[in-house]
Design a protein around this nucleic acid. Sequence first.
RNA 1: GCCGAUGUGGCUCAGGGGUAGAGCAGCUCACUCGUAAUGAGCAGGUCGUCGGUUCGAAUCCGACCAUCGGCUCCA
Length: 642
Amino acid sequence: MINVTLKDGSIKQIPAGTTVLELASSISQGLARAAVAAKINGEIKDLNTKLEEDAEVEILTLDSEEGLAVMRHSTAHLLAQAVKNLFPGTILGIGPAIANGFYYDFDSEHVFTPEDLEKLEAEMKRLAKEDYKFERQELTREQALDYFQQKGEKYKVELINDLPGEARISIYTQGNFTDLCAGPHVPSTKMLKAFKLQSIAGAYWRGSEKNKMLQRIYGLAFAKKSDLDDYLNKLEEAKKRDHRKLGMELDLFSLHDEGPGFPFFHPKGMVLRNILEDFWREEHLKRGYVEIKTPIILSRSLWEQSGHWDHYKDNMYFTKIDDQDFAVKPMNCPGGMIMYKSKLRSYRDLPIRCGELGLVHRHELSGVLHGLLRVRSFTQDDAHIFMLPSQINEEIIGVIDLIDYFYKVFGFEYHVELSTRPENSMGSDEDWEMATNALKEALETKGLEYKVNPGDGAFYGPKIDFHVKDCLDRTWQCGTIQLDFQMPEKFDLTYIGEDGEKHRPVMIHRVVYGSLERFIALLIEHYAGAFPVWLSPVQVRILPISDRHNEFANIVETVLKEEKVRVEIDQRREKINYKIREAQTAKIPFALVVGDKEMETDSVSVRRYGEQETAVMNLNDFVSLIKTEIITKKINDKGLVQ
RNA sequence: GCCGAUGUGGCUCAGGGGUAGAGCAGCUCACUCGUAAUGAGCAGGUCGUCGGUUCGAAUCCGACCAUCGGCUCCA
């Protein structure tokens, strides 16, 4: 007999050799039916795994993310089986579980079409009903190589060759289909019920553009049909808050063929932008920052000195002035270096926190452009902090706190990543290690959880990245803190120390919004276009009921304008219902209806965006209400759900 | 840049080898109206661009451009 510790802490005695499924049955039949896999001492295994010694066992069902992942992975195998049946000769890539579903990469002469997806889905449903068992088999390396070589599965052969020597090689078979796979899998295809093939995309084998591009089929898979439907609905809802759609509807910005990746900001978009800039200046001033502006075009020699010419050329735009080479800046730092060097600096001056709302241009590949989230010209809310080595920790923490403060004001949730030294970077390993450790230390001081992104740093230093989600849960890097020992060296930056000698300062590059464009896109999606009052391009729309109320409406407008409220009047000769509807679809936070009743009492009838009920209040009361919301930057949580 | 899809009036979309259609928006007129669409009329497109096939192309073919979904890359 062996002792099995269950999830709830209880210990069960069972005979050695009992399978996990039998264990589940002994607990309850319901659990046995719902079980998809099990976590044995932290490792996820098949249900028919035999328990030979004492262990901690957790039976996984589709109620857990881990159970879902197993099921999704099994669904990927089901797709591969369907593809093999319908398109014989297809060579298999890989097919993992991902958030909400799975994908599988295929190499096929046949180009998959959306119609094929329907056929494949039907075939998958047919196969699922066949109740094929997922059977695991372990092979030696030679057997595995033989098997897949014979079948012409060259990618699988490559994978096997790359497996470490001691790895156990396993294959899984369901019906007529066998795949190389570490597992685990659900017991049978009949557990695969709620899935849908979603899209076809190209994807490089092993994620390298040097390799062949395979055809990737994406699918969704959930525990039950209603979960799948819920998710599909969520996708539909998400489309409604897409910043590209809302940006046009709300007249914030536009994109045109004449300038791919170069957004046009409309008057209302500019209001939003300017508020973000005002807020930024205010908060930075409080924290001891100064602001500069450096040129957009600078000479080739500067970019050679900074290393951009060697490390960033592919992303830069060039021009000639009087036969000399110049480049349009892709980053603000070299300009900041020149500013620093424009006079002698003392240790007493440090840290210098030097901000710049700098417009940068980067040549991004055409296929990556995406609304305001990925553009070719954008404004970074940059700053370069020049400091003594002893100030590093404190300054990094200062920036972390600043970013956290900003994101909280907007109600953004974020996650943090630490990106380390990339290939093709400058500087010594010691410098990189020092810089990376400094960033880590600051993160740990703050107790922030972070994910490490190996090789994802800038060419001059490691960085802490702050990521925010868009409407489809794709994350976008916004804030970043980069520690740089290289630029000060390259530009021979110095300060005069206490000892009267020259010393090398250390530098931080950092942004809070990241880019105004990206941040605005994320704000639009976050609020679904219904901005909190302080950000709203139009805060109030006055709706006179008929012509005879226009005069009073004008008075209300004047009063609000005096208080710097952004207000407009809808004086068209339309019915009040119509005007209200339009104010709502324009997502204006306050619609003020004024008619006879209001005129007599110097009041306004206040209707908030997204609410049905109205409140008649004295004009002065409304002024103080809206002003409070503006000053406190109140977030209207109604805007977050639609 | 790579793979696939898409491109018809300001927007959403129908149509499809014989020189273009709807709804919304816009404009005009009437209605002066109490919390999500008043009615009538008018106007608006060389069907992404350039080539080719054809008696004839918006429709078929090709190239290019842009957009969308991915991949790679990034704020």
